[in-house]
Design a protein around this nucleic acid. Structure first.
Lengths: 232, 232
DNA sequence: GTCTATACCTGGATAGAC
DNA sequence: GTCTATCCAGGTATAGAC
């Protein structure tokens, strides 16, 4: 539909000029914000258009319909979700690897809270549009990494723990600072989370994860003594 | 709020006959389900009415408007949210109290997943309607219980930990089995969570919480040795 | 490619008979 | 108290000039 000049004009994925990419990313950015605030049904095309600074009809020029725009927003987000698990390898130091993973997830919650909220919203409502991603990509990544953690445990480098559920816990504990930010703020008596709060939160979650694996954690007080039988 | 028969028939809160209560609870039940699936804006009055088995106009007879119905659903849910914290007292055994609290939260996720999802949805979207509850009731309950946990730590009965953030972690880790059920199922390769899954999940979260507090946990393998310096 | 004007429809809310 | 028929706002999507 936008067959520009050049050697290979696709039918599905069009070539995309520089301007087009710019407009699309502006729209996607606005859409992420709007969908994060009120969900798919709650957010309106008018709202997204005004936030992106262009007339409503232009959205339909770049994205056929609201649902297509929403899926594009989700696609944009999903790639973020698998990242950072690669630090979890057999050869890595468990404490360092887990700390790095938690830190990465916390950073994501801090820098892309809207992305997290759109994802959360979609999952809560049944994940109808991203079921394939969850069942295929995500579950296979988790399965791989869980094997690594099991291996660590069988070598006595960490305490035995249910590795798959550990992932659920890490995701929940980190994403709560984005998804449930308003609750966290209310309980802390703040209007929004500052950098100091997030540093504190990150340290806390790291402590929880490391202690859950029977690992001592630097700077967390006289918490858990080193595992009696460490072998490497 | 429920002035039954007697001297003073109010204008705002009406007396409520038995039938009225029945109808209202049927509507509330249907509404919770519908709002859980698609959020406030996504759920329609038509859908709720058909699920409750009565014509749409009747909803408006019992609840002035959609927003009022939604708030009623939320009110119904909020009371559940503060429950069970009373097990956390200075005199209690930390391991037992924390285990009981986690178990209670897991039970809530298992038995009232829709309630959890409606609550999550509201918080993600900014908690505009329950801000007062979060800032007043919830935060004060948390502040009280955090003092208890701090006291436990200062007495050396548990390892030092950020008590307020520990609550965030417990809520996140337990509610994820309701709110993110579709993700959990996808990763586990199931279509829905069975009793066995929830038992396993509950054991896992309990382990995480106890280990985070430097406490040994029964039946969780050779994880954390008892704290070296326990005083009571 | 961009924008204005508009068609079409869904969904909340109400009127008024029973 | 219950239900049918209807109103009307607001939202998606499109037509068609520029």
């Amino acid at each position: 539909m936008t067959p520009r000049s050049g050697p290979a004009p696709q039918l599905a994925a069009r070539p995309k000029g520089r301007v087009r990419r710019q407009q699309e990313s502006a729209i996607l950015k606005a859409a992420e914000r709007v969908f994060a605030r009120t969900g798919f049904e709650g957010g309106t095309m008018t709202e997204i258009a005004s936030l992106a600074g262009l007339p409503k009809a232009n959205l339909h020029y770049y994205f056929r319909c609201k649902d297509e725009l929403y899926r594009a927003v989700l696609d944009n987000i999903l790639s973020l979700w698998l990242a950072e698990t690669e630090v979890i390898t057999i050869d890595a130091d468990p404490a360092s690897a887990l700390s790095a993973y938690v830190a990465a997830k916390m950073r994501l919650s801090a820098t892309r809270p809207d992305a997290s909220r759109v994802f959360a919203n979609e999952v809560i409502h049944g994940a109808t549009r991203i079921g394939g991603f969850l069942r295929d990509e995500l579950s296979s990544v988790v399965a791989q990494r869980a094997l690594v953690i099991d291996q660590w445990a069988s070598e006595g480098r960490i305490a035995p723990i249910d590795a798959t559920h550990l992932f659920f816990t890490i995701w929940a504990a980190t994403q709560t600072y984005a998804d449930f930010e308003s609750q966290v703020c209310a309980v802390l008596g703040k209007t929004r989370l500052g950098k100091a709060d997030l540093v504190r939160a990150s340290a806390h979650v790291t402590t929880v994860v490391l202690r859950s694996c029977g690992l001592p954690c630097a700077g967390a007080g006289p918490a858990t003594p080193p595992l009696p039988s460490i072998s490497h």
